[in-house]
Design a protein around this nucleic acid. Structure first.
Lengths: 352, 352
DNA sequence: GTGAAAGCGCTAACAA
DNA sequence: TTGTTAGCGCTTTCAC
């Protein structure tokens, strides 16, 4: 029953095209892949049929036969987090341009799910996996997870946004030190000396890097470092709100707060509002990520933009390079930019 | 070179397992699919090997052979919009439970991209496509798109969140009328009579439905309808901000604003703040979607929750039912719920 | 430049 | 219950 016209619900194949064009399936395949030479005449003929029937080669069959599926698997911690959504979209666009498809799955930060998703991606025969956040962002790599990744790595290369000690994963990171530097120089330049770091856990590579840079910069400007000025916590709105409330209760107000992300900053802002403080006159609030909420808060947030487009592009280019056996450095960093809006200003004089 | 132990970088196959277990590949396949009966003894033996090698069947080969890939394609307008992110995540979870994988792509609301994504999904041999928003949400269906969908539909069934006149798509919608009713009864119950509908275009089915319901409810409570009280626009923060500013300039303040979504409401709130109005004492603001920002604004937003988990589940169940030839109604609606927070209150007396 | 044919890893129909 | 075998739709040697 092969090579027949479009039966209802039956997709046409390379054989149908070949038959009608009076060539062999191999020739059709050649014009499809555009690799070997085919005479212009046959090429045109085949192409015409392809257009006529709106023919699309079966990606499954392709993947099966040449063991390259042209699919990039992406594991994100949580796509509902706009940070990951931005990165994912950037990856999707970059991948599409290179002729690749992306397959997304969420791990919700659960090690167990992360491993399951790894299995799923392997099963789907993706060519390479990009992991956004999750276990790969831990400062101390989880040993069980490292083993899992190593076993996957036998077949599928991986790119991660953090690091994974003891694995062969490529790393494409946002330059967290640079991000911290941008924020701190901005604040210090406006006379701030008492700066609180709020939110995030030092067990996360990027958070730890920011913390280290903070100490370094303070030293550079001969400002004393106090452990009190670093308040660890989660990465969400509630943490920002609660932490700021506590700080206010203690009557130990800094002149500036650096929130680990925009969500947290939103909580900080709410707390300050409720207590009647004016931003940035009484206190400056800045943060990282620069997702759309930075623009929606009152006052609008000064935030470090991670250049998502570049980040996604670097991630995907690296992934594809590995698949196509091209050289890429094992570690790359993308440079962030500071976007200054309304929430940061000169340190209040009476506190200096 | 077949049936050999794990060569570096070479995944093991059903043949490897079969050989080592001393059974035929078919038997291994049987325990994998768990359909036909296999003697407990062989089943155990095979299962043991599967565990030993952490063997995963090649999804491509599976899809090729039985023409079911067990993949659901999802086209979202923009995953960076938390509304779609919520729905997508709900779909992903529901799909995983049913043994399906989801393949996401963004159309950014561009007809052209939407059609390309459709092609891509067809090429990837997804079993069914779920379209979230986009062209399928137009009140008047785009004829070119309808044709495209019809041509895809010959091979792949589709589920949409809007409608697509002239196609065979199943519809799973949020009950927009109910959503509007919830909001309006809430406001009217608190004495509001001058209620402005803000944002959204009537060319979108769900927006249009809300508009119709608004007229209906006003009539029910014998409140005069004024076309002025319906302000169309986009679906974003800036639109809310600008529209509210205009309203204030005109000194034509209502006692309540119903924003088409939480983003828009955020803009409205900013505008009101800047002009010194107190929410909800001077004016109430409510909206639709109830994404996380509703909780992050000051005051916290009263918003209609679309019950994303149910919505995603209904979408996926419908999709799978079609694939598995089970009966499902062509049109289903999921019922929303009102979440009352701080932004809505009794209408100011002096305006009544 | 082109065709024939093998094979990618799996499932399902058919025998036994 | 189990094995044999024929594809699924494509790419890729290998001849010609």
């Amino acid at each position: 029953m092969k090579s027949q016209k479009l039966i209802e619900g039956k997709a046409i194949t390379i054989y149908d095209i070949a038959k009608e064009a009076g060539v062999s399936p191999a020739t059709v395949s050649r014009v499809l892949t555009n690799k070997t030479n085919v005479s212009q005449k046959k090429k045109d003929k085949v192409q015409a049929l392809i257009n006529k029937y709106d023919y699309r080669p079966n990606a499954l069959a392709r993947g099966l036969s040449d063991t390259k599926s042209k699919v990039i698997g992406i594991i994100a911690a949580d796509i509902r987090n706009p940070f990951y959504a931005e990165v994912f979209v950037a990856c999707e666009i970059a991948a599409k341009e290179a002729g690749y498809t992306v397959l997304l799955c969420n791990s919700f930060g659960l090690t167990e799910l992360e491993e399951e998703q790894l299995d799923m991606l392997q099963q789907q025969k993706v060519d390479v996996i990009i992991q956004l956040g999750g276990r790969a962002d831990d400062l101390i790599s989880d040993q069980e997870y490292v083993e899992k990744v190593n076993s996957i790595n036998k077949y599928i290369p991986m790119v991660v946004t953090g690091k994974l000690e003891g694995t062969q994963c490529y790393q494409v990171q946002i330059d967290a030190e640079k991000a911290a530097e941008l924020v701190l120089e901005h604040l210090i330049g406006m006379g701030h000396k008492k700066i609180v770091l709020m939110g995030g856990r030092k067990t996360v590579v990027s958070t730890y890097a920011k913390y280290q840079e903070y100490k370094k910069i303070l030293q550079k400007y001969s400002i004393d470092f106090h452990e009190d000025n670093v308040i660890e916590g989660n990465y969400d709105y509630d943490t920002g709100y609660a932490s700021m409330n506590q700080l206010i209760d203690k009557k130990n107000l800094p002149t500036a707060v650096v929130a680990i992300n925009d969500f947290l900053a939103a909580g900080v802002i709410r707390s300050l509002h409720e207590h009647g403080y004016v931003i940035p006159d009484d206190i400056s609030v800045v943060s990282y990520d620069n997702v759309y909420i930075a623009n929606m808060l009152t006052p609008k947030l000064t935030s470090v933009d991670y250049n998502y487009e570049d980040f996604g592009k670097a991630l995907v280019e690296t992934a594809i390079s590995i698949v196509e056996k091209k050289q890429k450095p094992l570690l790359q960093k993308v440079i962030p930019t500071l976007v200054i809006r309304e929430s940061s200003g000169v340190a209040p004089m009476h506190l200096n």
